[in-house]
Amino acid sequence: MPEETNGERVSRGVHSLNPFSKRDEFSRNNVLGLQIATLITYIIFLVNTIYYDANSPSEGHYHKHSIWGQNSHHGHSPFAQSSIITSIYWLILLLLQIVYIYFLASNNTTYVTAAANVGAHFIASNLLLFGFVHLWTRSHFVLAELLIIINFFNLSFAYFRHSTTPRLIHIGVVSGPLAWNFVALYWVGAVMVHAHGLAARIVANIFIWGILAYGLFFLAAYKDYTIGFALSVLAFSTGLGNFRSGVVQLQWIFAFTIGGLLFILSLAVGIPGLLGRDPFPRGQIVSEDRERAPLLADE
């Protein structure tokens, strides 16, 4: 067996120090560090979100609102959300993230490795969303949008590098948050540019179809109905948030149409796969290679 060169040693050392690198196994200390950081950032984000869900910031003199107070204050935004639907959506995600934390602490090496591989992305997401909530509630919309963009890339990298993660981990830590981050790009962006007029509404009527295109990509390329259903729910939330919108009355109609289409297509992809009768042969869009498998392990 050839000896390892200095370059290979350096590369291996950098790889081991990179918290976002994909590994086949993790040391006990690595896992312990991830467990501690994961739990701390999860609690910080959870407590912060619960507080600002009902309260507005107390310091400063700028326009301050709670999370949903801010949404209501800018209720004429073409991407305003339904506080009820999106809150239920996040409640489910937060519960699934508890399941993720359990897997990270389990005795099953397969689950621990899968959970640990997305751990750094999950920790980064918690910290970025923690910052987002503080900026959003204080009306710093440009910076809030910047953090949403950074987290969108963070979660996208997690998705494409770990698309075969076991389903319960995948939904709570990757596909569910990624779907919300994509819709939040529109939600926060529309508030940031004060998209209230006729021209902004017309542009929004076009941009909203990006939600459908984004969902179709994952349904076709990865056969991932989890992100399809997630985007469907968030499209319905956008529809309800714009149900009584003025100026141009098409936004809520388009949103409900997109939500319905994604829901039906996600059913078409998901049910046959769960029954073991997948009508869409693997490899038509992506390789059969396990690292690029169109959907996830069912474990």
Score class of each variant (00 low, 15 high):
V31Y: 02
R12V: 04
A115N: 04
W90D: 12
V31Q: 05
L128D: 00
N126A: 11
N30Y: 03
F26A: 10
L93E: 14
V99A: 14
R28N: 12
H76M: 10
N107S: 15
T86G: 08
K64L: 03
S106L: 08
G33K: 01
A116M: 05
R23Y: 01
P57M: 09
P19M: 02
A124K: 08
N71I: 06
Q70G: 07
S16C: 03
I44T: 13
E8P: 07
Q81N: 12
A54Q: 08
H74A: 09
W90T: 09
S82P: 08
N108W: 02
T109E: 15
Y111M: 15
I88W: 11
Y52E: 10
E8T: 13
A120V: 02
N71W: 04
A105P: 02
F103H: 15
N48F: 04
P19E: 01
N30I: 00
N117W: 06
L34W: 01
N55G: 07
L91P: 03
I67Y: 13
S87L: 14
T86V: 15
G7Q: 05
H61A: 09
G33W: 00
V14L: 11
H63E: 14
D24T: 12
R28F: 07
T110N: 04
R23K: 03
Y102C: 07
L129A: 00
G60C: 04
S58I: 12
V14E: 02
N126C: 13
F45K: 02
A120C: 02
P78T: 12
R23D: 05
N48M: 04
I50T: 11
L104N: 13
A120H: 08
Q97F: 10
T41C: 04
V112C: 06
A124Q: 00
N29A: 14
P78Y: 06
S77Q: 05
S106V: 09
V99F: 14
I123V: 15
S82C: 12
L127Q: 01
S125T: 12
N6F: 13
L94H: 09
S83F: 14
H73F: 13
L39R: 05
S58Q: 11
A105N: 11
R12C: 02
F79R: 03
F103K: 14
F130A: 00
Q97N: 15
I98G: 13
A115Y: 03
V118G: 03
S27F: 02
R28H: 03
L95E: 05
T110D: 06
R28Y: 00
T109F: 02
S72R: 13
T113R: 07
T86H: 09
V10R: 01
S72P: 02
L104E: 10
F79A: 11
F45H: 15
F103C: 10
Q97M: 14
L129C: 00
L46S: 08
I123K: 06
S83Q: 14
L96R: 09
L96M: 14
Q35K: 11
